[in-house]
Simulated scan of single mutants.
Amino acid sequence: MSRGLRIAFFGSSLVSAYWNGAATYYRGLIRALHARGHQVTFYEPDAFERQQHRDMADPDWARVVVYTEQGTEAVERCLEEAGRADVVVKASGVGVFDALLEARVLDLKRPGVQVVFWDVDAPATLERLERQPDDPLRALVPRYDHVFTYGGGAPVVTAYRALGARRCVPIYNALDPTTHHPAPADARFQGDLAFLGNRLPDREARVEDFFLRAAALLPASRFLLGGSGWAARPLPANVTNLGHVYTHEHNALNCSARAVLNIHRDSMARFGFSPATRVFEAAGAGACLITDAFEGVELFLEPGREVLVARSGEEVAEHVRRLTAPEARGIGQAALRRVLAGHTYLHRVSQVEAALGLRAAPATAARECVA
């Protein structure tokens, strides 16, 4: 490979996971890009109290630039600096100046500079563009050199191509084994089933079905609910509300409960091929994962051997009811072997490099779907 790339990346936050579901994804990818010799500057706004709820210091594998959300002067200075990079990335869902950034990064295109729109919530973005045909992003999509997506498989690629995208490559969630790995159990997190996720409008009904319904069916079992926004929600007596669980505690949580539940948001479940970060966090810890059913799950984990799949709260409850501790350990260990072999962020970065024209992508179980 030639010299490493200078990459300017505009995203929600690298240093805070507070109301920021993309944090683990960003960290895994950017750490892996650094390991491959690339230099990343991550530009993030001082917004939504994320800087007040940091869960990590500035890392040594990326330069972090925090700009104010008051006025446009600071973000314009960041754009001017980003113009010296080899690759400029605008991620979806920054939360501040999104429309400005989506248009202005395209002004940085010149020979030798590639500009990428990196959609960390492609199903939601595509549904928004379908509902709002006058959305400014619609006219910008064909001008980007690449659209990378958090997931979505063929349905997302087809939809972006229909919008005129030159190239669309799913870069799936994965495991960073340096941050998510087996850890000692913690008595605070011991229970029969743990679910970790913020309270969001487009997931709450599925949490009601897959988690709270299962808890109601198993009143003698202990259920753990982690994430922000649940304090005002009445919960069954056997559900312990943990509140916000910091990322450095995720390994302990995953290794303490007998099983861990993943629940996709509505749009991700509809599109399929969109495993959440929680899937790989749990697998990386060797936890027994139960996930709501989604199309494409077998590309990442084998149902019944490496993951348990449920289509309703009743099926979640049945899994929890019959699952023994030895069975749970066996499923978790099988999942850990699978993700280490083919689903780390180094595997994903090989796909990024291939898309950018640097090298060929390796053959893995979840090959990119490119158009």
Rank of each mutant, 00 (worst) to 15 (best):
44 E>K: 01
45 P>K: 00
46 D>Q: 08
46 D>F: 05
47 A>R: 08
48 F>H: 12
48 F>A: 14
49 E>D: 15
49 E>N: 14
50 R>Q: 09
51 Q>Y: 12
51 Q>T: 14
52 Q>E: 14
53 H>A: 08
54 R>W: 03
54 R>G: 06
54 R>E: 08
55 D>F: 05
59 P>A: 10
59 P>D: 08
60 D>Y: 10
62 A>G: 06
63 R>N: 12
63 R>S: 15
66 V>L: 07
68 T>H: 10
69 E>Q: 14
69 E>K: 10
70 Q>F: 13
70 Q>Y: 13
71 G>Q: 03
71 G>T: 00
75 V>W: 00
75 V>S: 02
75 V>L: 06
76 E>I: 05
76 E>M: 11
78 C>K: 03
79 L>M: 01
79 L>V: 08
80 E>T: 15
80 E>N: 11
81 E>L: 14
81 E>Q: 15
82 A>P: 03
82 A>R: 01
83 G>Y: 01
85 A>T: 02
87 V>E: 09
89 V>Y: 01
92 S>V: 05
93 G>C: 14
93 G>Q: 15
93 G>E: 15
93 G>H: 14
94 V>A: 13
94 V>Y: 05
94 V>R: 09
95 G>E: 09
96 V>I: 13
96 V>H: 07
97 F>T: 03
98 D>L: 05
102 E>V: 09
103 A>H: 13
103 A>W: 08
104 R>L: 03
104 R>P: 00
105 V>L: 00
105 V>G: 01
106 L>K: 03
